[in-house]
């Protein structure tokens, strides 16, 4: 990479150069450094997205050339494919129940852990561990088995006198099982909240206490507003990743999305359409609807919060 040869660019020679050449060199150096990203973005993101958009208007099975069918795929999704609508419903339920539960739990535990106790480090480790291993096949296998008919969850329910639940026989129960797996991994959000809480100075709470503010007042008037950008960031990232959840649904239902499509999350249905039924065009259309949905949700989240700090102008440190 001899783009800026240090031997010939002594300070004086540098200054003596034409400003245009200097600027050109500076630009070339900059682009040389970010070129891996630019090439990668073009080859693995932009071009594939263009192909995907084109395919979404075609019928394509990988073997015969794509056949243009206009908006048929999109129309079929919303009018001729009840399984798709069901999958969308299940996914929205998973996202809108799972993400708030997970974030609420994460914030609650972060607030409890935001003390100077010596044990905090150990607890933080324990709570965070599930997030680290949560995406693995091993954990999905584990989850599948603790919810089995004679597994520990039913054992615990039995201890409280509640009847055994057939987690794999009831679609709602199966979805609930997936949601609990997601809530169990609240640790990464908790860490981000903890970092945010650490930035709020204790003096503010003391001043509020002196003025007679109680716990809830302090929570709603100090903690929540000062954490709002962190909460928003968490919400956006968690919503997107929840929308794309694949491994747990795939492993727990053994790739079928059952029982009765109860765990047929969007990504799983897309995967099955694309790679089991070879409906590449239809799957591409599904992907674009997903992008649109995620985009709209993210847009709403950003719009509704005015305290969002944009990274490039904000993070000058």
């Amino acid at each position: 990479m001899g783009l800026s040869n240090p031997l010939t660019t002594s300070p004086r020679a540098y200054r003596a150069k034409k400003p245009l050449g200097q600027r050109l060199r500076r630009n070339l150096t900059g682009y040389a450094f970010i070129s891996p990203f630019i090439i990668g973005f073009l080859c693995f993101t932009l071009v594939p997205m263009a192909i995907s958009l084109y395919l979404s208007f075609t019928k394509y099975n990988l073997f015969a050339p794509p056949r243009w069918i206009g908006f048929d795929n999109y129309i079929k999704m919303f009018t001729g494919d009840p399984k798709y609508m069901h999958s969308l419903k299940v996914t929205l339920l998973y996202v809108f129940v799972g993400v708030p539960l997970r974030l609420g739990f994460a914030l609650f535990v972060a607030m409890i852990l935001n003390t100077k106790s010596r044990m905090v480090g150990a607890y933080r480790t324990v709570y965070y561990l599930p997030s680290i291993i949560g995406g693995s096949v091993a954990v999905s296998i584990m989850w599948r088995n603790i919810f089995s008919d004679t597994g520990i969850i039913n054992g615990m329910l039995g201890f409280f006198g509640l009847g055994p639940v057939s987690w794999f026989g009831n679609p709602d129960a199966a979805l609930f099982m997936l949601i609990t797996l997601s809530v169990w991994q609240f640790g990464s959000s908790m860490l981000i909240f903890l970092a945010g809480l650490k930035n709020i100075s204790g003096e503010m709470y003391e001043a509020a206490s002196v003025d007679g503010a109680g716990f809830f007042r302090k929570f709603f008037k100090i903690t929540l507003p000062l954490l709002s950008s962190v909460i928003l960031f968490n919400m956006v990232m968690q919503t997107i990743s929840a929308f794309m959840t694949f491994v747990p649904a795939y492993i727990i239902s053994k790739g079928e999305g059952g029982p009765m499509d109860g765990t047929m999350l969007y990504s799983l249905y897309l995967f099955r359409q694309a790679f089991m039924f070879n409906n590449m065009g239809y799957a591409s259309a599904m992907a674009w609807v997903m992008l649109l949905l995620v985009g709209v949700m993210t847009g709403i989240l950003f719009k509704t919060s005015k305290s969002w700090v944009f990274y490039e102008s904000g993070g000058g440190k």
Binding site: R26, N27, T29, G30, Y31, F33, I34, F37, I38, F41, F44, T45, V47, P48, M49, I51, S52, L55, V236, M237, I240, F243, M244, Y266, S267, L270, F271, A274, F275, M280, A283, S284, A287, W288, M290, L291, V294, T298, Y311, E312
Partner: peptide, 29 residues
């Protein structure tokens, strides 16, 4: 590094950070 288009590419990078991978799954395959 300062270069023309710095802000644009930085913005694109932040966008890809949030881009659902499913969108490129089929074409990449």
């Amino acid at each position: 590094n300062k270069f023309i288009g710095h802000g644009l590419w930085f913005g694109i990078m932040m966008m890809t950070l949030m881009l659902p991978a499913d969108v490129v799954l089929v074409p990449q395959y």
